[in-house]
Design a protein around this nucleic acid. Structure first.
Lengths: 154, 154
DNA sequence: ATAAATAGGACCAATTTGGTACTAATTGAG
DNA sequence: CTCAATTAGTACCAAATTGGTCCTATTTAT
Protein backbone atom coordinates (compact mmCIF):
# COMPACT_ATOMS: atom_id res chain seq x y z
CA UNK A 1 0.00 0.00 0.00
CA UNK A 2 1.94 2.91 -1.30
CA UNK A 3 1.83 6.29 -2.90
CA UNK A 4 3.37 6.77 -6.31
CA UNK A 5 6.88 8.07 -6.51
CA UNK A 6 5.54 11.26 -8.07
CA UNK A 7 3.57 12.01 -4.93
CA UNK A 8 6.65 11.37 -2.87
CA UNK A 9 8.60 13.77 -5.07
CA UNK A 10 5.77 16.25 -4.75
CA UNK A 11 6.08 16.35 -1.00
CA UNK A 12 9.82 16.77 -1.15
CA UNK A 13 9.53 19.67 -3.56
CA UNK A 14 6.69 21.32 -1.67
CA UNK A 15 8.58 21.02 1.60
CA UNK A 16 11.45 22.85 0.01
CA UNK A 17 9.12 25.65 -1.04
CA UNK A 18 7.36 25.74 2.30
CA UNK A 19 10.49 26.88 4.08
CA UNK A 20 10.79 30.09 2.03
CA UNK A 21 8.80 33.21 2.90
CA UNK A 22 5.32 33.41 1.40
CA UNK A 23 5.35 34.77 -2.13
CA UNK A 24 8.82 33.51 -3.07
CA UNK A 25 9.05 31.85 -6.47
CA UNK A 26 11.25 28.96 -7.48
CA UNK A 27 12.00 27.81 -11.00
CA UNK A 28 11.73 24.16 -11.88
CA UNK A 29 15.49 23.87 -12.33
CA UNK A 30 16.21 25.47 -8.96
CA UNK A 31 13.98 22.95 -7.24
CA UNK A 32 15.42 20.03 -9.15
CA UNK A 33 18.91 21.10 -8.17
CA UNK A 34 18.08 21.69 -4.53
CA UNK A 35 16.25 18.42 -4.08
CA UNK A 36 18.45 16.28 -6.30
CA UNK A 37 15.43 14.97 -8.21
CA UNK A 38 15.37 14.62 -12.03
CA UNK A 39 14.40 17.90 -13.65
CA UNK A 40 11.85 16.58 -16.18
CA UNK A 41 9.87 14.89 -13.44
CA UNK A 42 10.02 17.91 -11.18
CA UNK A 43 8.86 20.01 -14.08
CA UNK A 44 5.91 17.75 -14.83
CA UNK A 45 5.07 17.70 -11.16
CA UNK A 46 5.02 21.47 -10.81
CA UNK A 47 2.75 21.84 -13.82
CA UNK A 48 0.31 19.44 -12.25
CA UNK A 49 0.39 21.09 -8.84
CA UNK A 50 -0.17 24.46 -10.48
CA UNK A 51 -3.10 23.12 -12.51
CA UNK A 52 -4.65 21.77 -9.31
CA UNK A 53 -4.33 25.06 -7.49
CA UNK A 54 -1.70 24.05 -4.96
CA UNK A 55 0.90 26.23 -6.64
CA UNK A 56 0.65 29.58 -8.36
CA UNK A 57 2.66 29.76 -11.59
CA UNK A 58 4.32 32.86 -13.01
CA UNK A 59 5.22 32.45 -16.66
CA UNK A 60 7.89 34.23 -18.63
CA UNK A 61 11.36 35.37 -17.75
CA UNK A 62 11.93 35.67 -14.01
CA UNK A 63 8.90 33.44 -13.58
CA UNK A 64 8.53 30.35 -11.44
CA UNK A 65 6.27 28.65 -8.96
CA UNK A 66 5.15 29.63 -5.49
CA UNK A 67 2.72 28.22 -2.96
CA UNK A 68 -0.82 29.35 -3.67
CA UNK A 69 -1.63 29.25 0.06
CA UNK A 70 0.39 29.27 3.28
CA UNK A 71 2.01 25.93 4.03
CA UNK A 72 -0.06 25.45 7.16
CA UNK A 73 -3.26 25.42 5.12
CA UNK A 74 -2.09 22.78 2.64
CA UNK A 75 -2.72 19.25 3.85
CA UNK A 76 -1.26 15.91 2.83
CA UNK A 77 -4.73 15.14 1.56
CA UNK A 78 -4.59 18.13 -0.80
CA UNK A 79 -1.29 16.92 -2.21
CA UNK A 80 -2.35 13.31 -2.61
CA UNK A 81 -5.58 14.42 -4.25
CA UNK A 82 -3.76 16.70 -6.63
CA UNK A 83 -1.30 14.05 -7.76
CA UNK A 84 -3.24 10.79 -7.49
CA UNK A 85 -6.88 11.75 -7.59
CA UNK A 86 -9.44 10.83 -4.95
CA UNK A 87 -8.80 8.12 -2.38
CA UNK A 88 -10.65 5.11 -3.77
CA UNK A 89 -9.09 1.98 -2.41
CA UNK A 90 -11.03 -0.25 -4.79
CA UNK A 91 -12.95 0.01 -8.02
CA UNK A 92 -16.11 -0.33 -6.02
CA UNK A 93 -16.84 3.07 -4.52
CA UNK A 94 -20.34 4.40 -4.07
CA UNK A 95 -21.32 7.35 -6.12
CA UNK A 96 -19.38 6.57 -9.29
CA UNK A 97 -21.83 5.82 -12.04
CA UNK A 98 -21.26 2.70 -14.05
CA UNK A 99 -17.85 1.60 -12.78
CA UNK A 100 -19.24 -1.84 -11.86
CA UNK A 101 -21.99 -3.55 -13.75
CA UNK A 102 -23.08 -5.46 -10.65
CA UNK A 103 -23.61 -2.33 -8.63
CA UNK A 104 -27.35 -2.71 -8.23
CA UNK A 105 -27.16 -6.24 -6.89
CA UNK A 106 -23.80 -6.24 -5.14
CA UNK A 107 -23.90 -6.84 -1.42
CA UNK A 108 -20.30 -5.68 -0.89
CA UNK A 109 -21.04 -2.26 -2.34
CA UNK A 110 -19.76 0.57 -0.24
CA UNK A 111 -18.03 -1.45 2.44
CA UNK A 112 -14.69 0.20 1.80
CA UNK A 113 -16.17 3.67 2.15
CA UNK A 114 -15.60 3.99 5.92
CA UNK A 115 -11.98 3.04 5.41
CA UNK A 116 -11.61 5.51 2.57
CA UNK A 117 -13.01 8.23 4.76
CA UNK A 118 -10.80 7.39 7.72
CA UNK A 119 -7.76 7.60 5.48
CA UNK A 120 -8.84 10.95 4.10
CA UNK A 121 -9.24 12.23 7.62
CA UNK A 122 -5.77 11.02 8.56
CA UNK A 123 -4.29 12.74 5.53
CA UNK A 124 -6.23 15.93 6.25
CA UNK A 125 -4.78 16.22 9.72
CA UNK A 126 -1.17 16.54 8.51
CA UNK A 127 -0.17 19.92 7.10
CA UNK A 128 2.63 20.69 4.70
CA UNK A 129 4.24 22.91 7.31
CA UNK A 130 4.44 20.03 9.76
CA UNK A 131 6.06 17.87 7.11
CA UNK A 132 8.48 20.61 6.11
CA UNK A 133 9.96 21.39 9.52
CA UNK A 134 13.38 19.73 9.50
CA UNK A 135 14.05 17.08 12.07
CA UNK A 136 17.54 16.66 13.37
CA UNK A 137 19.21 13.43 12.29
CA UNK A 138 18.21 10.58 14.60
CA UNK A 139 15.75 12.80 16.42
CA UNK A 140 18.24 14.70 18.58
CA UNK A 141 15.94 17.71 18.61
CA UNK A 142 12.41 17.37 19.96
CA UNK A 143 9.50 19.74 20.49
CA UNK A 144 10.44 22.27 17.83
CA UNK A 145 8.27 25.39 17.95
CA UNK A 146 6.93 25.50 14.42
CA UNK A 147 5.84 29.13 14.48
CA UNK A 148 9.10 30.35 15.92
CA UNK A 149 11.06 28.24 13.48
CA UNK A 150 9.18 29.68 10.57
CA UNK A 151 9.61 33.32 11.51
CA UNK A 152 13.34 32.86 11.78
CA UNK A 153 13.38 31.99 8.11
CA UNK A 154 15.82 29.13 8.52
CA UNK B 1 -4.40 5.98 -3.99
CA UNK B 2 -5.61 2.47 -4.36
CA UNK B 3 -5.25 -1.10 -3.31
CA UNK B 4 -4.28 -3.71 -5.88
CA UNK B 5 -7.00 -5.70 -7.56
CA UNK B 6 -5.76 -8.80 -5.77
CA UNK B 7 -6.53 -7.25 -2.42
CA UNK B 8 -9.96 -6.31 -3.67
CA UNK B 9 -10.51 -9.89 -4.81
CA UNK B 10 -9.25 -11.06 -1.46
CA UNK B 11 -11.92 -9.16 0.40
CA UNK B 12 -14.64 -10.44 -1.91
CA UNK B 13 -13.55 -14.03 -1.41
CA UNK B 14 -13.11 -13.67 2.34
CA UNK B 15 -16.52 -12.06 2.68
CA UNK B 16 -18.01 -15.07 0.95
CA UNK B 17 -16.31 -17.37 3.44
CA UNK B 18 -17.21 -15.20 6.41
CA UNK B 19 -20.91 -15.87 5.92
CA UNK B 20 -20.57 -19.63 6.37
CA UNK B 21 -20.46 -21.23 9.83
CA UNK B 22 -17.00 -21.43 11.41
CA UNK B 23 -15.05 -24.44 10.24
CA UNK B 24 -16.67 -24.75 6.82
CA UNK B 25 -14.23 -25.31 3.98
CA UNK B 26 -14.47 -24.07 0.43
CA UNK B 27 -12.44 -25.25 -2.53
CA UNK B 28 -10.82 -22.72 -4.81
CA UNK B 29 -13.18 -23.60 -7.65
CA UNK B 30 -16.25 -23.17 -5.46
CA UNK B 31 -15.17 -19.72 -4.46
CA UNK B 32 -14.29 -18.73 -8.01
CA UNK B 33 -17.70 -19.86 -9.18
CA UNK B 34 -19.59 -18.13 -6.39
CA UNK B 35 -17.78 -14.84 -6.73
CA UNK B 36 -17.44 -14.83 -10.51
CA UNK B 37 -13.72 -14.13 -10.25
CA UNK B 38 -11.10 -15.91 -12.42
CA UNK B 39 -10.12 -19.24 -10.87
CA UNK B 40 -6.33 -18.96 -11.26
CA UNK B 41 -6.27 -15.66 -9.45
CA UNK B 42 -8.54 -16.89 -6.71
CA UNK B 43 -6.33 -19.91 -6.35
CA UNK B 44 -3.18 -17.84 -6.04
CA UNK B 45 -4.92 -15.60 -3.57
CA UNK B 46 -6.01 -18.42 -1.31
CA UNK B 47 -2.50 -19.86 -1.21
CA UNK B 48 -1.19 -16.50 -0.09
CA UNK B 49 -3.84 -15.99 2.54
CA UNK B 50 -3.17 -19.47 3.88
CA UNK B 51 0.57 -18.84 3.99
CA UNK B 52 -0.06 -15.64 5.94
CA UNK B 53 -2.26 -17.37 8.47
CA UNK B 54 -5.56 -15.75 7.55
CA UNK B 55 -6.88 -19.02 6.16
CA UNK B 56 -6.39 -22.60 7.23
CA UNK B 57 -5.79 -24.99 4.31
CA UNK B 58 -6.81 -28.62 4.16
CA UNK B 59 -5.00 -30.51 1.43
CA UNK B 60 -6.04 -33.62 -0.40
CA UNK B 61 -9.40 -34.89 -1.54
CA UNK B 62 -12.31 -33.18 0.20
CA UNK B 63 -9.87 -30.46 1.16
CA UNK B 64 -10.27 -26.71 0.87
CA UNK B 65 -9.85 -23.45 2.74
CA UNK B 66 -11.51 -22.10 5.85
CA UNK B 67 -11.05 -19.02 8.00
CA UNK B 68 -8.30 -19.52 10.54
CA UNK B 69 -10.09 -17.20 12.98
CA UNK B 70 -13.64 -15.91 13.37
CA UNK B 71 -14.53 -13.17 10.89
CA UNK B 72 -14.94 -10.60 13.65
CA UNK B 73 -11.30 -10.97 14.63
CA UNK B 74 -9.90 -10.48 11.12
CA UNK B 75 -9.40 -6.82 10.25
CA UNK B 76 -9.01 -5.04 6.96
CA UNK B 77 -5.49 -4.31 8.11
CA UNK B 78 -4.77 -8.04 8.41
CA UNK B 79 -5.95 -8.59 4.86
CA UNK B 80 -4.07 -5.66 3.37
CA UNK B 81 -0.93 -6.71 5.23
CA UNK B 82 -1.23 -10.27 4.01
CA UNK B 83 -1.66 -9.31 0.36
CA UNK B 84 0.34 -6.09 0.01
CA UNK B 85 2.79 -6.07 2.86
CA UNK B 86 3.15 -3.28 5.40
CA UNK B 87 1.66 0.14 4.89
CA UNK B 88 4.59 2.24 3.71
CA UNK B 89 3.29 5.16 1.74
CA UNK B 90 6.75 6.12 0.52
CA UNK B 91 10.20 4.62 0.21
CA UNK B 92 11.26 6.72 3.16
CA UNK B 93 10.03 4.94 6.26
CA UNK B 94 11.94 4.94 9.52
CA UNK B 95 13.31 1.65 10.68
CA UNK B 96 14.17 0.12 7.32
CA UNK B 97 17.89 -0.18 7.09
CA UNK B 98 19.52 1.11 3.96
CA UNK B 99 16.52 1.91 1.80
CA UNK B 100 17.68 5.51 1.33
CA UNK B 101 21.31 6.49 1.18
CA UNK B 102 20.52 9.98 2.47
CA UNK B 103 18.87 8.67 5.59
CA UNK B 104 21.38 10.12 8.02
CA UNK B 105 21.17 13.66 6.70
CA UNK B 106 17.59 13.77 5.42
CA UNK B 107 15.36 16.31 7.11
CA UNK B 108 12.18 14.79 5.69
CA UNK B 109 12.88 11.44 7.27
CA UNK B 110 9.92 9.98 9.08
CA UNK B 111 7.39 12.66 8.25
CA UNK B 112 5.01 10.20 6.63
CA UNK B 113 5.06 7.92 9.66
CA UNK B 114 2.14 9.57 11.47
CA UNK B 115 0.07 9.23 8.33
CA UNK B 116 1.08 5.60 7.92
CA UNK B 117 0.03 4.92 11.47
CA UNK B 118 -3.29 6.69 11.14
CA UNK B 119 -4.08 4.62 8.09
CA UNK B 120 -3.18 1.40 9.86
CA UNK B 121 -5.49 2.38 12.68
CA UNK B 122 -8.31 3.07 10.27
CA UNK B 123 -7.82 -0.31 8.64
CA UNK B 124 -7.63 -2.04 12.00
CA UNK B 125 -11.01 -0.71 13.06
CA UNK B 126 -12.90 -2.44 10.24
CA UNK B 127 -13.53 -6.18 10.68
CA UNK B 128 -14.17 -8.74 8.00
CA UNK B 129 -17.56 -9.46 9.53
CA UNK B 130 -18.61 -5.85 9.12
CA UNK B 131 -17.54 -5.91 5.50
CA UNK B 132 -19.28 -9.23 4.88
CA UNK B 133 -22.74 -8.34 6.13
CA UNK B 134 -24.83 -7.82 3.00
CA UNK B 135 -26.36 -4.44 2.48
CA UNK B 136 -29.61 -4.21 0.62
CA UNK B 137 -29.31 -2.58 -2.79
CA UNK B 138 -29.38 1.20 -2.43
CA UNK B 139 -29.30 1.00 1.33
CA UNK B 140 -32.92 0.04 1.92
CA UNK B 141 -31.95 -1.79 5.10
CA UNK B 142 -30.19 0.05 7.91
CA UNK B 143 -29.03 -0.86 11.37
CA UNK B 144 -28.61 -4.59 10.80
CA UNK B 145 -27.79 -6.47 14.00
CA UNK B 146 -24.58 -8.20 13.04
CA UNK B 147 -24.68 -10.81 15.79
CA UNK B 148 -28.25 -11.75 15.13
CA UNK B 149 -27.63 -11.88 11.40
CA UNK B 150 -24.71 -14.20 11.87
CA UNK B 151 -26.46 -16.70 14.12
CA UNK B 152 -29.26 -17.04 11.60
CA UNK B 153 -26.71 -18.36 9.16
CA UNK B 154 -28.09 -16.45 6.21
C1' DA C 1 13.95 41.33 -30.13
C1' DT C 2 15.62 38.06 -27.05
C1' DA C 3 16.13 34.97 -23.48
C1' DA C 4 13.97 32.63 -19.74
C1' DA C 5 10.49 30.44 -18.12
C1' DT C 6 5.91 27.67 -17.99
C1' DA C 7 2.15 24.74 -20.87
C1' DG C 8 1.04 20.87 -23.14
C1' DG C 9 1.69 17.15 -25.74
C1' DA C 10 3.63 12.72 -27.79
C1' DC C 11 6.46 9.10 -26.87
C1' DC C 12 9.42 5.33 -24.82
C1' DA C 13 11.48 2.04 -21.56
C1' DA C 14 11.12 -0.29 -17.33
C1' DT C 15 8.54 -2.03 -13.81
C1' DT C 16 4.51 -4.01 -11.87
C1' DT C 17 0.54 -6.69 -12.14
C1' DG C 18 -2.89 -9.96 -13.26
C1' DG C 19 -3.35 -14.05 -15.31
C1' DT C 20 -1.73 -18.79 -17.23
C1' DA C 21 0.39 -23.22 -17.11
C1' DC C 22 2.62 -26.92 -15.36
C1' DT C 23 4.52 -30.15 -11.90
C1' DA C 24 4.82 -31.90 -7.13
C1' DA C 25 2.86 -33.14 -2.76
C1' DT C 26 -1.02 -34.51 0.13
C1' DT C 27 -5.09 -37.05 1.43
C1' DG C 28 -9.81 -39.08 1.58
C1' DA C 29 -12.44 -42.77 -0.49
C1' DG C 30 -13.33 -46.90 -2.82
C1' DC D 1 -3.38 -49.83 -2.56
C1' DT D 2 -4.79 -46.94 -6.05
C1' DC D 3 -7.00 -43.11 -7.76
C1' DA D 4 -8.90 -38.77 -8.04
C1' DA D 5 -9.33 -34.35 -5.96
C1' DT D 6 -7.18 -30.86 -3.98
C1' DT D 7 -3.53 -27.56 -2.35
C1' DA D 8 1.77 -26.00 -2.94
C1' DG D 9 5.11 -24.08 -5.58
C1' DT D 10 7.31 -22.14 -9.48
C1' DA D 11 8.15 -20.28 -13.90
C1' DC D 12 6.40 -17.55 -17.32
C1' DC D 13 3.77 -14.15 -20.35
C1' DA D 14 0.98 -10.15 -21.76
C1' DA D 15 -1.04 -5.95 -20.63
C1' DA D 16 -1.21 -1.86 -17.96
C1' DT D 17 0.97 1.58 -15.35
C1' DT D 18 4.63 4.58 -14.38
C1' DG D 19 8.56 7.39 -14.48
C1' DG D 20 11.23 9.69 -17.51
C1' DT D 21 12.49 12.14 -22.09
C1' DC D 22 11.81 15.30 -25.74
C1' DC D 23 9.87 18.71 -28.57
C1' DT D 24 7.04 22.69 -29.65
C1' DA D 25 4.08 26.57 -28.26
C1' DT D 26 3.12 30.42 -25.25
C1' DT D 27 4.09 34.04 -22.06
C1' DT D 28 6.82 37.88 -20.16
C1' DA D 29 10.73 40.72 -18.12
C1' DT D 30 14.62 43.06 -19.79
Amino acid sequence: MRLSRMTDYGVVVLCQMALAPQGAVYTASQLARQTGLPLPSVSKLLKLLAARGILRAQRGAAGGYGLARPAESISARDIVFALEGPVELTDCVEGRGGACERERSCSLRGHWNPVNQAIEEALSRVTLLEMAVPRAPYDFIRGVDVGKFRSEGV
